[in-house]
Nucleic acid binder design. Sequence first.
DNA 1: ATATAAAATAACTGACGGTCATATAGTTTG
DNA 2: CAAACTATATGACCGTCAGTTATTTTATAT
Lengths: 208, 208
Amino acid sequence: MGISERKEREKQRRIKEIVDAAELIFFLKGFKNATMDEIAQQAELSKGTLYLYFKSKDHLYSQIIQRACRILYNRFVEAAAKVKLGVDKVNAIGEAYYQFYLDEKDYFNVMMSFESKDIPIEIFVSMKADEDCDPHIVLIESIKIGVEDGSIRKDIKPNETAIILWAFTTGLMQLTSQKKELLEEGYNIDIKDIIQLADKIMNYGIKA
Amino acid sequence: MGISERKEREKQRRIKEIVDAAELIFFLKGFKNATMDEIAQQAELSKGTLYLYFKSKDHLYSQIIQRACRILYNRFVEAAAKVKLGVDKVNAIGEAYYQFYLDEKDYFNVMMSFESKDIPIEIFVSMKADEDCDPHIVLIESIKIGVEDGSIRKDIKPNETAIILWAFTTGLMQLTSQKKELLEEGYNIDIKDIIQLADKIMNYGIKA
DNA sequence: ATATAAAATAACTGACGGTCATATAGTTTG
DNA sequence: CAAACTATATGACCGTCAGTTATTTTATAT
């Protein structure tokens, strides 16, 4: 049956068009100031049509979060693959996160809002179900490898430690991105220094 | 002039009444679901009157953030005062934060939203101007003391380190509070364990 | 008593997320 | 090919809510 397949393709294309339009508007205006009418206009569709494909503004936004997650996840996988030792993988992931912050500011901010904003539970759960979208997992695996190859202390629990490192890094990134001006101008502190120092502290905590 | 003083007192009382009402509703419903009409009703005033004292819903919410800050600040000061050594002060502050999370859930959540939510810049700045409302400062001072008394490594820069520890802790607290169920039920991880382990990692990083 | 200033109100406005009855284009069937 | 059917799309409409304003009430000063 070629027709239903073409229909399906068209549907997917339409969905992509809508998400693209939404992304543009969300990036431009932020979640709160973006309106569904504006997104519809950008997509050259009526607002009603958006609701045919996405059940709410939140739901549409979650699509952008998902994109951000995928990109970050891929960067993590790539970074971890470049080195052998577990502890090096962990560091490479940290570096990759910082690089992500530098050259994907929009997606980065979306990720931050995912970590902090009140996302309806159902959406949150459906996202976690998507394995390709959990950068966290790369970190857990790298720590496990580190414990096995002896580059990370044996007494460390991979799951717990991954959560902690993730939380630490996210907290740092959030502060960094939100209070950048305050830090640099108000306190005369360089972001890069902060990141390096933070890295050092985390390394002290896990290195064998 | 006794009358204008009484007027001023009454004005302050009214302000307090409004903030009390707002707090109740915000705690009950969260920022987004709370309505100004509801707050007005709770305060036994008309909505217009709220706008006589506060210029927006955001502005009113920032009052609650400020209360949360003050409480946390006081707890930090108290905790730090109980011990002598700088490094112990830092640990006491961490412990106080956790205790704050345990017995002031509502205020804690408000603090978290302060760290993450998009608060209009002007409000943010006016809050930072309020010295009594920056728990951060207690941490910086304690680290400085630790460097002086030799309980914290000499090569550590108090300002930078304070920011990092603050970011780490906030990130951890945020994750903890938002994904509590997921961690405990999904991954079978105990929050208390996480906090302790995180504490250990941070201590490795700063102890002399 | 009256003028004046401050505090409070409630009806109103505009914006926006979400819905629904209706229309249109594409597909199937007789 | 026409009629019936289905999926897709529309835009006018609705309810809610933050914020405003014209008006009224209350309190102070003259």
